[in-house]
């Protein structure tokens, strides 16, 4: 009973177009689950369904034990979400952003302040708490956005291409935060198209044309596809794709 995400034949259609085609997988508690795929492969759509942002056309999905089609409110309370676009308010200060999202997720008032101090010192942002978010460098913004997404200690955090546009070293720092979160028992579901990030995941699924074509640990995937790197695995699979953009 350690499964926190489970889908069975989860499908999303937009008119005639099948964005997500009968995907089935499960994610265990505390796992870092990588969700890979080329642009248009359907990973963002799949993730939106899991977050209760989009209703499945058919199939089933359970997140934190709640039905994603019927119990969206309960699903939303158990998860954190960091979107592909920057998800904090640029015109609010660091402190104001944390307070806002802590409030939205119903974190108790008396735990907000000490936790905020703790978070800020982990991030090394204690001196910046009254700065506007737009004044921060991109790498810091993303780390802050992640910390805000897990501030309410969700069971699962969904990260949609969280490190777009930053260099590998900053990405490495970002991933240190992710590992810390998993040590606290938070499950991480992450989409990415950086192959160095893919290597950091416990297990990976690779989506091609709306279907999951491969699902295993990075080492097993490399062995299975007789590839040196994840990049090679990914390219071997992505070559089969017939569509490019949604």
């Amino acid at each position: 009973m350690n499964t926190v995400i489970e889908t069975k034949n989860l499908t999303k259609q937009f008119g005639d177009f099948t964005a997500v085609d009968r995907i089935s997988f499960s994610v265990k508690k505390g796992e870092i689950f990588g969700f890979l795929g080329a642009n248009g492969a359907g990973k963002t759509t799949a993730m939106r369904m899991l977050c209760g942002l989009s209703k499945p056309t058919s199939g089933q999905g359970f997140v934190a034990g709640f039905d994603i089609a019927r119990q969206t409110e309960a699903v939303k309370k158990s998860i954190g979400y960091m979107s592909q676009k920057f998800s904090l308010y640029e015109d609010l200060t660091v402190k104001e952003n944390i307070r806002l999202f802590a409030g939205i997720y119903g974190v108790k008032e008396k735990t907000i302040l000490p936790k905020m101090e703790e978070t800020l010192s982990t991030l090394g942002l204690s001196n910046e708490k009254n700065s506007l978010v737009k004044a921060l460098p991109l790498g810091w913004k993303q780390k802050l956005a992640f910390s805000v997404a897990i501030f309410h200690e969700p069971q699962i955090v969904f990260l949609d291409e969280p490190t777009g546009g930053v260099d590998p070293i900053t990405r490495r720092h970002f991933w240190e935060l992710i590992y810390e979160a998993t040590e606290r028992g938070i499950t991480v579901f992450v989409t990415t198209h950086y192959m160095d990030e893919a290597e950091y995941c416990n297990r990976l699924s690779i989506m091609v044309d709306g279907r999951i074509d491969a699902l295993d640990t990075p080492a097993h995937l490399r062995a299975q596809f007789r590839a040196e790197t994840m990049d090679e695995v990914f390219r071997k699979l992505a070559r089969k794709a017939t569509r490019t953009e949604i």
Binding site: L53, E73, K77, Y81, F86, S87, I104, G106, F158
Partner: peptide, 10 residues
């Protein structure tokens, strides 16, 4: 993109 984050929240 903040609307998406808000909609994903409870």
């Amino acid at each position: 993109g903040t609307m998406e984050v808000l909609l994903a929240s409870p």
